[in-house]
Design a protein around this nucleic acid. Structure first.
Lengths: 117, 117
DNA sequence: TGATTGGTTAAGCATTCACTTAAGTATCAG
DNA sequence: CTGATACTTAAGTGAATGCTTAACCAATCA
């Protein structure tokens, strides 16, 4: 699929990398500077900044530079949209299972009915 | 980061692709065969099967071949783990905001206190 | 039996990704 | 002003990703 790149797309893509999830985990405990985020990681600073840019363009994170320090903050609304997408699919599936269960229970009582959608 | 590849990693990676999310959306409404999944997509069958393999090795999906038809089913537990990860981070952040709010409300009443963690 | 349907295997290719190093540019501290 | 700190920019590289086509296999059907 040739780059439809919805915002949801960018968010899932951002979260697909373990380094970036580590950053999100750190940021969920409060804002941090670029070098604070880099500290636990075993890669060069530019690499860290590249990851940060991906997180930022996905909307998962926001950042502001004051003096020479860039402070990064999580964007809870974005996380919520990801969560919502996953939840919606799971709920759909479970609703279907419920319907199916109801049908099976009912069809043993009253056989000869049509199956559910 | 040189391929730590946790299962969560594989799941996020699987969901990062729009084609695969379309498949998950379809599957959340009930099981489907490979060619049913392929129908709305504008790519070759092998490409579809490759996406399917990625979904399956991530654990998001299960499949079984009967006769010549492979039927694919969603794995709700896997979806739930993804959902949980996102939810945990968001909750952490919101708990932090609450603490901060409480501190600010209190510090205007009783100034001169220490800040929260 | 021979064609069709449904899927699989293999190989190749262009693009994107996750890094790297090297060389900057501001800001702040002494 | 001088040096250190905190990034930033640019360019390059090897590996992974998302496709493709071609050929194949194995159930089902006329």
């Amino acid at each position: 699929m040739l780059n439809q790149s919805t915002s949801l797309d960018l968010m899932f893509q951002a979260l697909a990398d373990p380094t970036r999830r580590i950053m999100v985990e750190r940021l969920s405990q409060g804002p941090a500077s670029v070098s604070e985020l880099a500290k636990p990681l075993t890669m060069s600073l530019p690499a860290v900044v590249q990851h940060l840019q991906i997180l930022e363009t996905s909307g998962l994170v926001r950042s502001e530079k004051i003096g020479r320090v860039r402070t990064v903050t999580i964007e809870p609304g974005a996380l919520q949209r990801v969560e919502q997408w996953v939840n919606d699919r799971r709920m759909l599936w479970e609703r279907r299972l419920d319907r199916l269960g109801a049908y099976l229970a009912q069809s043993t009582d009253e056989p000869g009915q049509e199956g559910p959608a």
